[in-house]
Amino acid sequence: MKKKNRRVASAFYFMVIPMALLFFTLHTLPFLQGVFYSFTNWKGYGKWAVVGLRNYIHIFSDPDIVQAYGFTFYFALFATILVNLFSLLLAMGLNARIKLKSTLRAIFFLPYILGNLIVGFVFKFIFANLLPPIGKALGIASLSVNILGTDNAWLGVLFVTVWQSIAFNMLIYLSGLQTIDHDLYEAADLDGATGWSRFKNITFPLIAPFFTINMVLCVKNFLMTFDQVMAMTGGGPGTATTTVSVLIYKRGFHGAQFAYQSADAVLLFLIIVAISLFQLFVLEKREAKLA
C-alpha cells in the first residue's frame, strides 16, 4: 500500500518531459556543440578537423583574449564593489520613516526597467557633449574631452553599468532590511550601539544572505557585460573596453573564429562557475559564522 502511494503518476512525466526535451535541444545541445567545436578548427563554414587542446593553448598567448579577460575581471570587480556599496547605502537611506519614501524608491528603481542599450546611448551623448564643457570650466583635463575616446573610457562604461544595476540590488537589500525587527534597533540604542557598530553587529549579519545573493548575481552579470559596451564604445578605443562577451560576438560571428571563440566561451563558462561556487561557499560559511 505504502509503495503504491509513492509511485509517481505518469501524468507528471508528461508535464516535464516535453519541455525538458526542448530545453535539451535548444540550450544543452548548443552548449555541448560549443564544447565539441572548441576542440576543432572550424571557421564557422567549410571543412574542419579535430585539433585537441590547440585552441585552449593558443588562447593564453593571444594578446586580445588575455586583454579581454583582464579587462572583464577588472571591470566586474569594480562594478560589483561599487554597486553593492551604493545600493546598500541607498537601501539604508530609504529604509526609514522618511517622507516621499515610496516615490523615492520608485525613482531609484526606474533604471532597472530601461533598456541597457538606450541608457548607454543617452549617456554616450552626455559624455560626448555635456561633460567636456563642464570639465573645461572646472579645469579638469581628463573631463575636458569625451571620456569615451580616451584611456578612461572604461570609467564611463562603469558609471553607466553601476547607474543601472544599483536599482535591482537596492531592492534586494531593501527587502532584507525590512525583515529586521525594529525592536532590535531600539535594544541596540539602549546599549549605546549606534552608527558603525550598529551596522557591523546587527544590520549586516542579519542581511548577510541578501549580501550573498547580490554578490553572486553581480559578479555573474558583470562578467557577461555586453550591452553597455556595444552602446557606448563598441569595445574601443582600440580594444580597451572589449569584454569577453563582446570579443566572442565580434570574432565568433564576424572573424571566422567559430571554434576558437567557442573555446573562449567554454573558458568563460568555467570561470563563472568556479567563481560563483567559490563565492557561495565562502559567503555562506561566513554567514553561518555570523549567525
Partner: peptide, 19 residues
C-alpha cells in the same frame, strides 16, 4: 535545470545561431 543557470548566453550563442 538549476545548473543551466550558470551557462551565460554568450557561451551557447555561436552554435545556437547555426542551429
Amino acid at each position: 535545470l538549476i545548473s543551466a543557470m550558470f551557462i551565460p548566453f554568450a557561451v551557447i550563442m555561436l552554435p545556437l545561431v547555426k542551429l
